[in-house]
Structure formats: C-alpha cells, structure tokens
C-alpha cells in the first residue's frame, strides 16, 4: 500500500463546553511509529481514540486504508478494532481473572483460533518479551513492568496493522519504562505494525520515528517566517 495508512483530517470534538480537538490533522504511514506529545488536556488521548474509532469526531474525517472510518457503524468499528488494531494502556488493562498466558491468547481465540494453538503462540510472545516465567500468574501477582510486557504481547499477537498505545509506560519507573519501550517498538517494527503512541514523556517519544505535538486540540507548526 502506498500513501498513509491512517489519516485524521481537521478533527473537531467537544465534550460539552470543553473543546478537546480544534482542527487536529495527522497522518500515519504503514510501519511508522508516531508519538503524540503534549501537555495534559492538549487532546492527544482524544485524537488517539478518534483514530482508533473509539470516539466519533463532531467534524472532520478519519480514514483508514483510504476509506472513512468515522462514519462506520459501531459493529463495523468493533470488528475493525478486533481484527486490525491492538491496544496498550497505562495500566495494562489485562483481564484480572485470567493468567498472563490466557490474556495474551485471548485476541486469537476471539478471532476463532483454537485454544491450544493460541496458547502456543502466546507462550512464544511471552518468551520474546522476556516474561515467560509469569505465564501462569494472574495480573495481581505480577510487577508493573511484567504486566506491561504481557499487555504488549497481547496487543501484538494478532499481527495488527496499527497498535494504539496510551501512556504505556506511565505507571513504570524510568528504567523499566525504557526497557518496555525498547521491546515494544522493536517487536512492532519487526512485524511491520504501525504504532500511535500517546505520551507526555519526551524520552518515551524518542523511541518513535516521528513526533508531533498537540496544544489546545491541534498540532503545533514550524515558524511561519523561517
């Protein structure tokens, strides 16, 4: 595919009187790791949720692989998120009743894979991310860094075209955060997944191929007189 994989074009979105997006536009290329930087309340998480089809903008378009995403039905967008997208959130969002192995195998089972085959793949992802030893543990029995690595494995196991990561290292200390980012971006690049990464930490954004900065719901620009 040539051209951008994902496009946000002049997005506007308000929550009551609060304007979250005010003309935000951005493109994500296939295989690109893009960081959305900005202070709290700048609209970066809202932009990520619009790109992922979780939120619908009041105005503007989101296009995925050349076709509109924002005007699809809830069911069509859910299907897209299950088949094409992966997600990593700040606190992992793992299912607390399931073991690490079962959590990672879950996306494959939801798309019809048999449990044994799914768990075999899940085990290989846990090994790749250096957390094979927690395969039988539940989220409450893991450290923050282990939990985030399991969450990364779960996001990548289905071979998504895009992984959306919202402050994936926000709950980790500096060193663990960097280790998770190193493993996350390396694995995503290896399988050709694009990554949209929301963060307020510039050292985390430095793992991306490109960074854009949001302020007051739109992207900042280079000096007009330069």
């Amino acid at each position: 595919m040539t051209g951008p994989l994902l496009v946000a074009d002049d997005l506007h979105l308000a929550f009551g009187p609060t304007r979250a997006l005010a003309g935000a536009s951005v493109e994500v290329a296939p295989g690109e790791v893009l960081a959305l930087l900005g202070p709290s309340g700048s609209g970066k998480s809202t932009l990520l949720h619009c790109l992922a089809g979780i939120l619908t903008p009041d105005r503007g378009e989101v296009r995925y692989r050349g076709t509109r995403l924002d005007d699809r039905s809830d069911e069509a967008r859910s299907r897209l998120r299950r088949n094409d997208f992966g997600f990593v959130f700040q606190f992992g969002s793992l299912v607390p009743e399931l073991t690490a192995l079962a959590n990672v195998a879950l996306p494959l089972q939801l798309t019809g894979a048999r449990r044994r085959a799914a768990e075999e793949q899940a085990r290989s992802w846990l090994e790749r991310l250096g957390v094979a030893d927690v395969a039988g543990k539940r989220p409450g029995e893991m450290s923050g860094g282990q939990g985030q690595r399991v969450a990364v494995a779960r996001a990548l196991i289905g071979g998504p075209r895009v992984v959306f990561a919202d402050e994936p290292t926000g709950a980790l200390d500096s060193l663990n955060g960097e280790l998770v980012m190193e493993e996350f971006t390396a694995a995503a690049r290896d399988q050709g997944s694009s990554v949209v990464l929301v963060t307020h930490e510039t050292r985390v954004a430095a793992y991306a191929d490109r960074s854009v900065v949001l302020r007051d719901g739109r992207l900042t620009a280079a000096p007009a007189w330069a």
Binding site: L37, T202, R203, A205, A206, Y207, A208, D209, S211, V213, R215, T220, A221, A222, P223, A224, A226
Partner: peptide
Amino acid sequence: AEQILDAQRDAHLGVMRGLT
C-alpha cells in the same frame, strides 16, 4: 514566540531520537 519554542522542541526531539 511559541513557534520559537516549537522549533526548538522539534530540534531537540530529533537529537533524542538519534541518541535513542
């Protein structure tokens, strides 16, 4: 003036990506 800060931020982020 914010564009001066934006340009400086972009330049710094570029150096940080290279170091990373």
